[in-house]
């Protein structure tokens, strides 16, 4: 499925870990200002494909990526691409909350500092405050910004990581099972947050939770054995999937 104005495009993308192929010739467009969900059974290559979108696979020595991926039409695997710049534009939130062992303030200020986004201390404070507010964490932490980020609860830590990611004003946010380590209440908070963030960023979320995909996303892609089986509006995928494999998966025939 393609759009008139996609944010990111992937054409025939394959990923290999050594001799083993984990993603097979995936072609997909990620829309601007919408939430896209990746679903599929464990080991089908969702995370691997997600990580190609900000070149995090570069950090795995054995990984090799083929095909073309573009951000706003610009090939992100071309020799001229600055990976540092790319990752500032395409942020990422991980499965397990991974705040740095620094203060809450320093966690959020990390990106703006390394990218030189704030000229003065007051600018930096404004960025930190804005990001924490957007991540829905400000009221809980405003009185203890100098406490360690690792001292927060798991759900708060994950929102801190989201605040950290949006502090550098990315265009795309990739989330790899951001709620799988959280309880239902913290999960609900993150889902609300995704709904609020939608419209400002292109969001791609990997999830194992069908209801979550249905609740937060507008588009859903179903992966199976490294292939993109079906990609459509979330409503369509969950009510009238075209592929038998998709239908089997969402009805729980296999997982």
């Amino acid at each position: 499925m393609t759009f008139a104005q996609p944010k990111m495009t992937a054409r025939d993308v394959s990923v290999f870990y050594g001799p083993k192929q984990a993603v097979k010739s995936v072609t997909i467009d990620v829309p601007t200002d919408e939430v896209t969900a990746f679903i599929g059974p464990s080991g089908c290559g969702k995370s691997t494909f997600l990580r190609t979108l900000n070149r995090m696979n570069d950090t795995i020595p054995a990984a090799r990526v083929e095909g073309q991926i573009a951000l706003d039409g610009e090939d992100i695997y071309s020799a001229g691409m600055d990976v540092v710049q790319l990752r500032a534009r395409v942020g990422m939130v991980f499965q397990k909350p991974n705040p740095f062992p620094k203060s809450i303030f320093e966690n959020v200020a990390y990106g703006p500092r390394i990218h030189g986004l704030a000229r003065h201390k007051s600018d930096l404070e404004a960025i930190v405050q804005r990001s924490l507010k957007r991540a829905g964490l400000w009221d809980e932490v405003k009185d203890r910004l100098s406490d360690s980020g690792t001292a927060l609860s798991g759900g708060q830590q994950q929102r801190l990581c989201i605040a950290r990611a949006i502090a550098v004003d990315p265009e795309v946010i990739l989330m790899d099972e951001p709620c799988s380590a959280l309880d239902p209440i913290a999960t609900a908070r993150i889902e609300e947050l995704i709904a609020e963030l939608r419209g400002n960023y292109a969001i791609v979320i990997v999830t194992h939770n069908m209801q979550q995909a249905a609740r937060v996303s507008q588009r859903t892609a179903f992966f199976h054995l490294g292939q993109l089986v079906e990609y459509d509006a979330t409503d369509t995928i969950f009510t009238a999937p075209k592929e038998a494999r998709t239908k089997d998966y969402i009805t729980g025939r296999y997982g």
Partner: peptide, 22 residues
Amino acid sequence: PTAMRDGSLAMGATTNETIRRV
């Protein structure tokens, strides 16, 4: 944990910045 390193790299930090700051 590698999660720290990945977190920093995913923010667009270079390897050197990641080592020094995280």
